[in-house]
Design a binder for these strands. Sequence first.
RNA 1: UGGGGGAUCUGCUAAUGGUAGGCGAGGUGACUCUGGAUCACCGGGUCCAGGUUCGAAUCCUGGUCCCCCAGCCA
Length: 561
Amino acid sequence: MSEAMQPANFIEGIIMEDLETGKHKQIVVRFPPEPNGYLHIGHPKAICLNFGLAEKFGGRCHLRFDDTDPEKESIEYVEAIKRDVKWLGFDWGEHLYFASDYFEQLYEYAIELIKKGLAYVDDLSAEEIREYRGTLTEPGRESPYRNRSVEENLDLFQRMRAGEFPDGSKVLRAKIDMASPNMNMRDPVLYRIKRATHYRTGDEWCIYPMYDFTHPISDALEGITHSICTLEFEDHRPLYDWVLENVSVPCRPQQIEFARLTFSYTITSKRRLLRLIEEGYVDGWDDPRMPTLAGARRRGFTPEAIRDLCDRVGVAKKNSVVDIAMLEHCVREDLNRRAPRAMAVLRPLKVVIENYPEGQVEELEAINNPEDPSMGTRKIPFSREIFIEQEDFMEDPPKGYRRLAPGREVRLRYGYVIKCEEVIKDDEGNVVELRCTYDPNTLGGVTPDGRKVRGIIHWVSAAHAVPAEVRLYDRLFTIENPGEVEDFWNYVNPESLVVLKDCKLEPSLAEVEPGDFFQFERQGYFCVDIVDSKPGSLVFNRTVALRDTWAKIQKRQEKKG
RNA sequence: UGGGGGAUCUGCUAAUGGUAGGCGAGGUGACUCUGGAUCACCGGGUCCAGGUUCGAAUCCUGGUCCCCCAGCCA
């Protein structure tokens, strides 16, 4: 750490001070997910923050599963979360932990609390406890069981563990203050009886510790120095500190809260996402439209882009909504730098170049990535019959349209200038084919007579084209705040997925592997679907479209009328 | 309404008593064999009202608005 180092956010400020004052020699932080679901696009903020802090300040970051509710958790989620964290590019090394590994110690700490007269077994029902808790404005009342003797509490708690009492019949509560203005301090429940098989401890336990008791102790046991969590735990902090003060733990971690990451046009509520799946709006947790990391990965969002985004949004305590365009920008920026270019015609229109010799094939040289010359070049076959994009031809083009139209010229990318001589239509008047001529002197981007050809379009040789399915993905919702409306399903973007089955790819794309990504020139970034793509029946997903200035101009013209 | 937090361009975020800056979005232009990319430029902000100070986004006082908390979830 250099002296010139500036804290990037208030948490770094705290850490730098703790390091400078010698409060800590080394920092230890943790990412503590509950394995009860998939990680979503908001989680990387916490992951990058914690692992990033460890990297930056030479400390370490633990991955700890906060698995104290056996009814919701499973090993599948553990594996999914590990995969996602790794995918993002972070390594917890040896430091993989489970709160469930601390159950025995947690139990001993509970005994300690009881012995100190700071915890008691309560026979009130869940409903009674709620009633006794009071409200935001009225103090709670003390349970009639609150003043049991230490001996009786010890006996009862041991028998809770031994399974002598039915589920829900008793709990262990901290004895703090039923009149506290902080609801969390009104004798919070520490342990509940729950006969559920835990995915790791099986049926060894029938009592399970609560978060507020488990978390501070787990942190202390692991030597966590800074326990970073989200804003909603702010008023749990007094309880976090209370536990650490009253139990003989080896150290005293500090809880620090920050604002979670949320995006416009996105929901992350598990309940709501599940509904989208169950009602068929999307195809599952890894549907490329889903805000899960599994979905983002399948969509083609890169870990580099997501990490870059986390750097850019910063860390603060203000609840905020990041414009999803920021994520899209980061994805484009990363892929622009790294994605090989290719030509792919999504909605093909056949073009016959009448003055080009039948049977002749030329190999034209194309640049793999103008941003990175080291990626080299490739050859693309050109022949008499090609496909171009339907939208690159208009019979009656508006002002400003640079592409093909009857009698007009356009340049084929890396190829010749062609001119549209004739439009062939079917019985219904649809354009089905174009007859063109080419100018043999225009190869290599030149026009010997100096005439300007503004339009450049992509194309694929018909005889050499590789067929593929292309799935055009777009934002899942049409409104900025789908998380805030009741009937969010009414705002699912009907065009969030458009499937194109008759796409034509340049032949170099025949041998792609799942997960490979490309820029289809003039269109966007696409990746080979990791689930459905097979050799011979390729499936590409559009990760994000290229910025489209022409579309913007058109939209503006439409608005003007 | 008790308690805990938060308010800086349209969005995110910096400036910790000393020139309100960056990124994204939007707009304009240059350039270009991707209407891409790149580059340049433009507009635009300290929640309000007082106070302290040579000087306030920052400190003080009083308001306003927003978020979180009444699980045997985390």
